[in-house]
C-alpha cells in the first residue's frame, strides 16, 4: 500500500456531442469514467482507489454548458455549467436564489471555478474509509468500517443507513431537491427525466452508487420548474471551516407564503443521510402557520425525529433541529 499521487495511464475521449459521449460511455460500461470538472475524479484516480480504463471528458460538448430560460418560466442549467456561473448568474440569483446560495458555498472559489453543477450532484461520498480506497461495502466489499463499534464516524449518517453510513456531500443537491428540480439524463436509448428527489440513491437500494446514473448515462441538464421560482428561501451550511469543507449538516428550504402563513414548503437537509433528506414531517407541520420563531420552535424537533446516531455524530440531531429553527426564523 502506498500514497499514490500520479495519474495512471488511461484512454481519454473528448466527444463533442452528447450522443457520442453516451455511445462511448455505453461501450465502456463500468470500465469508463465520465469526467466533468474533475474535482472529485482526480482524487480517486491519482490515489489509484478507482481504476477506470478510459475517461469520457464532457468539457468539449457545448450544449452541456450554459443557463437558459425554458417555456413556462423555468430555467434549464447545462450539467457542465460551473458552480461559479450558477452562483453568479443573474437569472438564477433572481429566480432561484436558493441554488445560487448553495452553489456559492461549495468548497472554495478555485474549486467552484472548475467544478460543475452536474459534477457536484453526481460526486461520490467523502466517507474517509471509502476514500482511503478500502474495500468496504460501497467499494463492493463485505464490511463497513465506519459503522462499527469503534468506527470514527463524526461526519456520517444519522438517517437511512443500510450497512453503509456514508452521507451525500453535495451542497447543491439539497437546493435542487427543495426546488423540485428535474434531472435530464441521456443514454443511447434516449433522454429521460428524473425528479431530483428520486435522483439520489441510498445504500438500501444501491450500496455502490450515490445516484440513479448507471454506466452509460450522462446527466445533461438540470431543469428548475417555475413552481418554486421567486419563493422565500433559506440556505445554510454548517461546516467546521468556512471555506473548502463539506457540510456537517446543511439545510435548503423554500417557502410559499400567503397572507403571512406558509402555504407550501420544502425543507431538505444535507449530510445527514446518503441522500438529501426531505423533512416531510416538518413540511406538513408548518403549512398554515406563520414563518416565525414560534413556528420554528414548535416544529424543530420533528426534523431529527427517528435519527439513529453513530458513535461520534450525535450532534447532528440537535444541529438539524436548530437549522430548521433558523430556516423558519429568517
Amino acid at each position: 500500500m502506498s500514497a499514490y499521487d500520479v495519474m495512471p495511464d488511461m484512454e481519454l475521449f473528448q466527444p463533442v456531442t452528447v450522443e457520442d459521449a453516451a455511445a462511448l460511455a455505453e461501450r465502456l460500461g463500468s470500465r469508463g469514467w465520465v469526467l466533468a470538472g474533475g474535482q472529485d475524479t482526480y482524487g480517486w484516480l491519482k490515489d489509484r482507489a478507482k481504476h477506470p480504463k478510459a475517461m469520457v471528458d464532457l468539457s468539449s460538448i457545448d450544449v452541456l454548458n450554459g443557463i437558459e430560460e425554458t417555456d413556462g418560466g423555468g430555467v434549464k442549467i447545462g450539467a457542465m455549467t460551473t458552480l461559479r456561473e450558477v452562483s453568479r448568474d443573474q437569472l438564477i440569483r433572481a429566480r432561484y436564489g436558493l441554488l445560487a446560495a448553495a452553489a456559492a458555498r461549495v468548497a472554495s472559489p478555485q474549486i467552484r471555478n472548475q467544478g460543475t453543477l452536474g459534477g457536484n450532484v453526481s460526486q461520490d461520498t467523502r466517507c474517509w474509509y471509502y476514500r482511503r480506497g478500502l474495500s468496504c461495502y460501497r467499494a463492493g466489499g463485505n464490511i463497513c468500517y465506519a459503522d462499527s463499534p469503534e468506527g470514527m464516524n463524526r461526519e456520517h449518517a444519522i438517517f437511512g443507513a443500510s450497512r453503509c453510513v456514508a452521507v451525500s456531500p453535495s451542497d447543491t443537491a439539497t437546493a435542487l431537491v427543495a426546488l423540485d428540480a428535474t434531472m435530464v439524463i441521456q443514454n443511447t436509448r434516449g433522454v429521460h427525466r428524473v425528479a431530483a428527489g428520486d435522483f439520489f440513491v441510498g445504500p438500501a437500494v444501491n450500496i455502490t452508487r450515490m445516484t440513479v446514473l448507471r454506466p452509460g448515462d450522462i446527466l445533461t441538464a438540470i431543469e428548475l420548474p417555475a413552481d418554486w421560482a421567486h419563493a422565500e428561501y433559506y440556505f445554510e451550511k454548517v461546516a467546521d471551516r468556512n471555506v473548502w469543507d463539506f457540510a456537517l449538516v446543511s439545510i435548503a428550504a423554500a417557502f410559499r407564503t400567503e397572507n403571512g402563513t406558509i402555504r407550501d414548503a420544502r425543507l431538505v437537509c444535507g449530510a445527514v443521510s446518503c441522500v438529501p433528506r426531505r423533512l416531510t414531517s416538518v413540511e406538513r407541520a408548518v403549512i398554515g402557520k406563520p414563518r416565525n420563531d414560534s413556528t420554528g420552535e414548535a416544529v424543530a424537533a420533528l426534523a431529527s425525529e427517528g435519527a439513529r446516531p453513530l458513535n461520534y455524530n450525535h450532534f447532528k440531531a440537535p444541529l438539524m433541529d436548530n437549522l430548521v429553527r433558523r430556516a423558519l426564523r429568517a
Binding site: 469503534e150 463524526r154 473548502w244 463539506f246
Partner: peptide, 28 residues
C-alpha cells in the same frame, strides 16, 4: 479546528489531506 483522528480498530489515520485535517482558511 484542527483534527487528528485515528481508527482504533485498525490503526488507520483519518486525516491525510488538508480538507480532512482542517487548518484555518482565510474565512475562519
Amino acid at each position: 479546528l484542527e483534527r487528528h483522528v485515528y481508527d482504533p480498530q485498525n490503526g488507520l489515520p483519518a486525516n491525510v489531506g488538508y480538507y480532512q485535517t482542517r487548518p484555518p482558511t482565510y474565512l475562519d
